[in-house]
Amino acid sequence: MTKLKIDLKNVSKRFGSKTVLNGLSLSIPSGESTVVIGGSGTGKSVMLKCILGIITPDAGEILVDGVDVVKLRGGDRDAYLAKFGMLFQGGALFDSLPVWENVAFGLIQGRNMARGKARDIAIEKLAKVGLGADVAKLYPAELSGGMQKRVGLARAIAADPEIIFFDEPTTGLDPIMADVINDLIIATVKDLGATALSITHDMASARKIADHIAMIYKGRIIWNGPVGRIDDSGNDYVDQFIHGRAEGPITMDLLKP
């Protein structure tokens, strides 16, 4: 039995009258890659933001390295967040800063590293995601979508985090660039020995980067298992999702024409 890095227990969150997380429980083993799949609006992003403390859950426990992190404040919370790196869906690069300062941001602002040293590390991390030093001086708006994703990845790994979150890492990319990003994710996670948690609805990506897959539906985890078992999960919801069928137990709230 491997050690648990993150353990979510009965986490619930409502926004007004809308229940987004409904007693979600999920255990994420240390040093492995867990992918959470699920449709749009099922609570995937809210789950990540709860773990990061950007959103406070209404109920439940979130244990990271055995410590309940929901009520962390001030210095404890800063130290806790230093464990994380995150690749955002749209990149979320700071458009007022050049690429190298984006990558070095957590080192300069978060850890008070000297700018020159942080710049060297940034260029080294950019090289890891296949970007040359000439890109470092450009601004995010001058980059293509795939390059922005790679800069986002370099920023996520810049401070050598213990845990990396990937929010829809391949959404909006062409299939080849998506696979390049998948390879980079696998390589960087292995390289750092980090625990990875990704959310996606891209099954090709999920199959490639996951050790474990969990499926979220209506704010709960309805299936959880190793990636090899995904095709014989015995769960109708999972089957419908991975084959992308409109007919099945999951119904979209659409008006039929």
Binding site: K49, L52, G53, I54, D78, L81, A82, F84, G85, M86, F88, Q89, G90, A92, L93, F94, D95, F105, G106, Q109, G110, R111, R155, A159, F165
Partner: peptide, 20 residues
């Protein structure tokens, strides 16, 4: 910055958005 998640990104980079 809010709608493109840049403010959330600040938090994940150990920088308090109120301070910054």
């Amino acid at each position: 910055m809010r709608v493109t998640e840049q403010i959330d990104a600040l938090t994940t980079l150990s920088t308090n958005p109120y301070k910054y």
